[in-house]
Design a protein around this nucleic acid. Structure first.
Lengths: 171, 171
DNA sequence: CAGATATAATAACAATTGATATTATAGCAA
DNA sequence: TTGCTATAATATCAATTGTTATTATATCTG
């Protein structure tokens, strides 16, 4: 059970290395992982707004602006005015983007193959199921308050604890 | 098998949210995840150099400098001269740090409990085993060249591919 | 031993990412 | 309609993280 202690570390490290490896594969296509993701999601949702695409891909609006800026400059997609909402822009793939999509699928597949080498289909399935469950759990915690002190121990003991310094609370 | 396509996304998102959740728990201790990790590893390795501790925790040297700077200022650890190597500094926990360690263990445990809610011990074990294996795989790939083109398809087709722009190759 | 190369810590700088403010427009509600 | 609040996109600024260079010292090799 002590094995669990590496959970956070392993997760992060695998994630980092996996992205790195993908981008290594994607070198000859000169796209980052996020750009690839953007293309992939856009293919199945042409005409969406940037906000919507950001949501789909799990990025924030600002990040999407930056990515779309770059990819529009590279002629991989284009912004068009939304006739129904003058604030919004509809996103569309360009012809140039199409061949990239196939390539991306291959790269993703190849990377996953490397990463799951020696792991049976059954194990992979089980792993993914648990990962999905964990994901659901951690999403559910999103804005749930922390209920500490199950042990009943008083932890914020006052004198000992003159709060070192405020910590950047992300988001 | 299509489920696998979410692997990268899920991994990253879980990792992000898990860290966030941990830090949410760690709010009343005002430490970041990395600071906590530093304390935990330092406890079991008092007297190590910064370089060594960086390696143990999976951070880079520069990151460790920053963290140690901050934590030394907060009197959670101290740097002492290494009598055997005048370049190096030996790291030690302060008395102030001790109570934090217990708290950290609790917080980590609590966070993992939340995250693995509803997942049996057997499943957790299996999950962790696969994760370890995946980690080993992805580490092994580290500096291995990409051998694309298993399919034999020519992908770098020349004219179509006027390399959009160089991409920042991380590391 | 002398010089070459490597390492520990850190500084200085660059790139990435995240948070906040701004502008235009939409949609609702009195 | 008139205002109030929300939303889309984006600019701006701040924090974080990554990269390269620097200094001192260690270690190796001829």
């Amino acid at each position: 059970m002590d094995r669990m202690k590496n959970f956070g570390f392993l997760l992060k490290d695998v994630s980092r290395r996996y992205s790195l490896r993908f981008e290594q594969h994607a070198r000859d296509i000169s796209l980052t992982l996020m750009q690839c993701k953007t293309l992939v999601y856009l293919e199945k949702n042409e005409g969406v707004s940037q906000a919507k695409l950001a949501e789909l891909t799990g990025m924030d609006a600002m990040m999407m602006v930056r990515i779309v800026d770059r990819m529009e400059a590279d002629h991989l997609l284009e912004r068009r005015a939304d006739p129904a909402d003058r604030r919004a822009r509809q996103l569309y793939l360009t012809k140039k983007a199409k061949p990239f999509l196939e390539k991306i699928a291959q790269l993703a597949e190849a990377t996953r193959a490397e990463v799951f080498a020696g792991i049976s289909k059954t194990e992979r399935e089980a792993f993914m199921r648990t990962l999905e469950q964990v994901h659901a759990n951690v999403c559910a915690l999103e804005d749930q308050p922390v209920n500490s002190n199950k042990t009943g121990k008083t932890t914020k003991s006052s004198k000992e604890n003159q709060t070192p310094r405020p910590v950047a609370v992300t988001k």
